[in-house]
Amino acid sequence: MRTTIGYTVESIGYVIGAQGVVSFASQTFFGTEWGWLHKVVDLPSTAYLGLVALGLALVAGGVKTRKAAERRQTA
């Protein structure tokens, strides 16, 4: 079960991080809106960097949870 949770959290982290990168890059460098995140919330460019950090934290937490579960199963 922890392995499944780890994969799920990691996958959500990838999506959030990717949307943060795309939204930040589109607003900062092109002055347009890309991705779907801007349809949900209207944030300034720097706030999207916070979403990138959140995505990275979720990926790291998911990997840690998954690896811990795999270590328990093999022990």
Rank of each mutant, 00 (worst) to 15 (best):
G6R: 05
A75W: 06
A25G: 03
G62F: 02
V41L: 05
V15D: 05
R66Q: 15
A75G: 13
G61P: 09
G31F: 02
L56H: 11
K67F: 13
L37C: 03
V40R: 05
R2N: 15
K39Q: 14
V63M: 13
Q73C: 01
R71T: 12
S11N: 09
L56V: 10
A57Q: 03
R72D: 15
L54P: 04
L51M: 13
K39D: 14
G55K: 01
G50V: 01
G17M: 10
V21R: 01
G35D: 11
V21T: 09
G31N: 09
T28M: 08
G35N: 12
H38R: 00
W36T: 02
V41C: 01
M1K: 08
T74Y: 12
D42G: 01
A68Y: 04
V21D: 05
T46M: 03
M1N: 13
V41Y: 02
G31R: 06
Y7C: 03
V40W: 12
D42L: 01
I12H: 05
G20C: 05
A53C: 08
I12P: 12
Q27F: 04
L58H: 09
Q19P: 00
V59E: 15
E70I: 06
V40P: 05
A53P: 07
L58G: 09
G35I: 06
V59M: 14
F24K: 02
V9E: 08
G31S: 10
L49E: 11
T28G: 02
Q19M: 13
E10Y: 10
P44N: 12
L49I: 10
V59I: 11
G55D: 00
W34L: 10
W36P: 10
A68H: 07
K64S: 11
G17Q: 00
T3L: 11
I5L: 11
E33I: 00
K64H: 15
L58A: 11
L58T: 01
L58F: 14
R72V: 03
R2K: 14
V22H: 07
L49C: 05
A18G: 15
Y14E: 06
L54K: 01
A47E: 09
V9W: 07
S23E: 08
I12N: 06
T4R: 08
W36F: 14
A60M: 06
H38D: 05
A69P: 15
W36G: 07
L54R: 02
Y48N: 07
L43P: 11
A25S: 12
G31D: 06
S11Y: 06
Y7F: 09
V22M: 14
G6W: 10
L43D: 08
V22P: 12
G50Y: 10
I16A: 13
H38V: 00
L51S: 01
R72H: 09
G55A: 00
Q27K: 15
L54Q: 04
K67M: 14
F29M: 12
Q19D: 04
E70T: 04
A47N: 07
E33D: 15
G6P: 13
S26H: 08
K64M: 12
P44W: 06
I5V: 15
